[in-house]
């Protein structure tokens, strides 16, 4: 048995120990990941002349926007100690239906709310199956991963959907004060999410449920309601990403978002979220997304094969989780 000096009550010493551990806690894993990301930037800047050009940077900003929005949504179920494996497929299904509506000359202002409603409906179904039927989130959303992708192929016949109105790529092409509009949208979504998690009761209840669902229930928190909201947010943000992808490619692609769920989960985890629930921040998700986008972009520029890219990403996730675990143990006083 490892001894834990922190658990012996001895007046002020206990307080000091806990204060010190809370200080250690304030240097979270995101900081290391951010530092590492900056290192990668410097390295890529040295090895590739193109990396730090304005064109590549705004390209990366657009790419990271879509990935980060999916990751922000994914964070909510993860904090609950749940998971949503269906977000990639939901992005594809909502995207393709959005594109088909536009191709059928429905005005954007009608197609958009319809797609949003579809996203919310899917989130509601996921949430109800998990909370009311008591099926593990992993199983429910694994079914969604498969099912919604299948529906995407069914409605599109497996073909891309072209014929988008010319106004559509406004979002993807334009900038606001030099910052790509997509990035601004992502930042707004991120800020709202951060606000919810950090400052509202809903956010606090997410963390409470994620660390101890039974005790949350016993203090009177409406666990069902919070669960539904979280899965709705995940699906809604996936729908946003789906529409942004259509705008970016100016077509609907049934293969959009393949593997996006894993990328989103990885970004959240690298950014300090725990798959056991109760932990994770929007800022961390953003940093994680930036790191993965950077690695993808850098690997392309340097001509590293996408297979190696996957290996590197895998190693990175393992490393971050390992470092985080050591930190957590130290914080809990286990040596």
């Amino acid at each position: 048995m490892a001894s834990a000096p922190a658990t012996t009550p001895s007046g002020p010493a206990v307080a000091d120990e806990a204060q010190a551990s809370s200080l250690r806690h304030r240097l979270p894993v995101e900081i290391y990941v951010l530092g590492f990301t900056v290192l990668v930037w410097v390295g890529l800047g040295v090895f590739s002349r193109y990396f730090l050009t304005a064109g590549n940077i705004s390209n990366m900003m657009r790419q990271v926007s879509i990935d980060a929005i999916v990751a922000f949504g994914e964070l909510f179920p993860i904090i609950l100690a749940g998971i949503d494996l269906s977000v990639g497929s939901v992005a594809a299904l909502t995207g393709i239906l959005f594109a088909m509506m536009l191709a059928a000359h429905l005005p954007v202002l009608l197609a958009l709310p319809l797609t949003v409603a579809l996203g919310l409906l899917i989130g509601l179904i996921n949430g109800l199956a998990i909370d009311r039927l008591g099926i593990p989130a992993f199983i429910v959303t694994l079914a969604g991963l498969q099912g919604f992708r299948g529906l995407t192929y069914l409605v599109s016949g497996g073909m891309t959907v072209a014929g988008m109105p010319s106004s559509l790529d406004l979002v993807a092409r334009t900038s606001i004060a030099g910052i790509p509009t997509m990035f601004v949208l992502m930042a707004v979504i991120g800020l709202v999410s951060h606000f919810i998690l950090r400052y509202t009761r809903l956010g606090r209840y997410c963390y409470a449920i994620g660390s101890n669902a039974e005790s949350a229930r016993r203090v009177g928190i409406n666990v069902t309601q919070v669960t539904l909201v979280c899965y709705c947010i995940a699906a809604l943000f996936a729908a946003f990403a789906g529409m942004l992808l259509v705008s970016r490619l100016t077509m609907g692609n049934p293969n959009a978002g393949v593997g996006a769920e894993l990328q989103a989960i990885a970004a959240a985890v690298v950014g300090g979220a725990s798959l056991f629930g109760g932990r994770g921040t929007i800022l961390g998700c953003f940093i994680g997304s930036v790191l993965f986008t950077t690695i993808g972009n850098g690997a392309n520029l340097l001509g590293v094969s996408s297979f190696w890219q996957m290996v590197i990403e895998g190693l990175l996730i393992a490393l971050v989780v390992y470092v985080d675990n050591i930190q957590k143990k130290r914080q809990a006083g286990v040596r």
Partner: peptide, 8 residues
Amino acid sequence: DLALADAL
């Protein structure tokens, strides 16, 4: 056993 939420 289940008095508190660890994350808070």
